[in-house]
Design a protein around this nucleic acid. Structure first.
Length: 354
DNA sequence: AACGCGTGGCC
DNA sequence: TGGCCAAGCGT
């Protein structure tokens, strides 16, 4: 059910007016450089504004232009992303930026069909870049917008479903103005971030309260509806701290799956029914590591989106450092560990071990 | 279509 | 304190 033309006009006017008075002064709002907008949208995927800001500032300092990023190495880009999470975003962005330089003369495509082909740019990011940087009338429906629409129009569909986002995009198309599509899209998101928040929406300060179906019915706390996600599955994991003469063995993780392609300590699952020392010793034997003096150095827990690692860190001394290294393993001097990009779970471990 | 993919902040 | 999230995308 689409909003009436009268309702649509009220929403456009009130939202744009409210946004122009209340918009936050964020680093990516300094100008409309498509590269700056693009980077911000990728970093902001599933990530809070306050978390992103320092990463964004540092990243822009290190890679001020699209060409600078295209000319960087993968290691540099991932290092700049270290700690931000969802690391495939960095790899996809880097790959896409290189493609823009190679195939589009270094200009971010302004056509929906073209930009949508780039890695890491889905329906939301496409709409955000095109509307904010190029003033195109394309919807940008993210979690904020879905929450706002759910409440404004009392939509009870599960916002975790793909079909719901398409429904919301149809509504957005009916609302988005010719004059300032980028401001309007950002106004919707800003309203979701500042007023129409998940927990306790500030309906008394809402510029579109008068046309909000949920507010009228007292349903703002019941909406949006969203399927609960399963709790992370616990896994017992061992980190091997394999040392020799001031050096440590590190492992590059597989190119797919959790922390894909990231550096870490050699990591393996605890085998049920075995002691820690048995599993550790079997692991070292299997890898051909001549290790001795096994010793538990500490424990930590780390919760990912769907895994809960219960980690035991076990140290062993490598007696013969010139043994043939397993694939994707390297020796690193302890003081050089900081030069490499480790995801946070390993940084937490290293903090305890060093 | 449903699931895998990080992290930190919030109450 | 731990469950719930926060400007999604790829498969």
């Amino acid at each position: 059910m689409l909003p009436s033309p009268e309702t649509a006009e009220v929403i456009r006017r009130e939202l744009l007016d409210w946004y122009r008075k209340n918009r936050r002064d964020l680093p990516w709002r300094k100008n409309k450089d498509p590269y700056r907008i693009w980077l911000s949208e990728i970093m902001l995927q599933q990530t809070r504004v306050d978390t992103v800001i320092p990463y964004y500032e540092r990243f822009m300092e290190q890679f001020p232009t699209l060409e600078d990023l295209a000319n960087a190495t993968d290691d540099q880009v991932v290092k700049a992303w270290e700690g931000l999470g969802y690391y495939s975003r960095a790899r996809n962005l880097h790959s896409a930026v290189k493609e823009v330089v190679a195939n589009y003369g270094g200009r971010v495509p302004s056509e929906p069909e073209t930009i949508a082909k780039l890695k890491g740019i889905g329906p939301y990011t496409k709409g955000a870049i095109l509307s904010i940087a190029y003033d195109k009338k394309v919807p940008a429906v993210d979690g904020n917008v879905m929450r706002v629409f759910s409440r404004l129009f009392a939509i009870t569909d599960d916002i975790a479903k793909q079909s719901t986002r398409k429904k919301m995009e149809r509504i957005a198309e009916a609302l988005i103005p010719d004059s300032a599509p980028g401001d309007f899209n950002q106004a919707l998101m800003e309203l979701g971030a500042l007023i129409c928040t998940p927990g306790s929406p500030q309906c008394l300060f809402c510029p579109v309260q008068s046309v909000c179906h949920a507010y009228r019915e007292g349903l703002e706390h019941e909406l949006p509806r969203k399927k609960k996600q399963k709790p992370p599955e616990p896994v017992d994991v061992i980190f091997a701290w394999l040392i020799c003469a001031g050096r440590v063995l590190v492992e590059k993780r597989p190119e797919t799956g959790l922390l894909a392609g990231m550096w870490g300590l050699p990591t393996f699952e605890q085998v049920p029914g075995e002691t820690l020392e048995q599993t550790m010793e079997n692991f070292c034997d299997k890898k051909g590591v001549p290790a001795s003096n096994y010793q538990v150095k500490g424990r930590l827990e780390h919760i990912f989106s769907h895994r809960h690692w219960k980690v035991v860190m076990i140290q062993a001394e490598v007696s013969e450092p010139d043994f043939p290294l397993p694939e994707n393993w390297e020796w690193v001097k302890k003081e050089d560990l900081r030069l490499r990009a480790f995801p946070n779970v390993y940084r937490k471990a290293l903090k305890q071990l060093i």
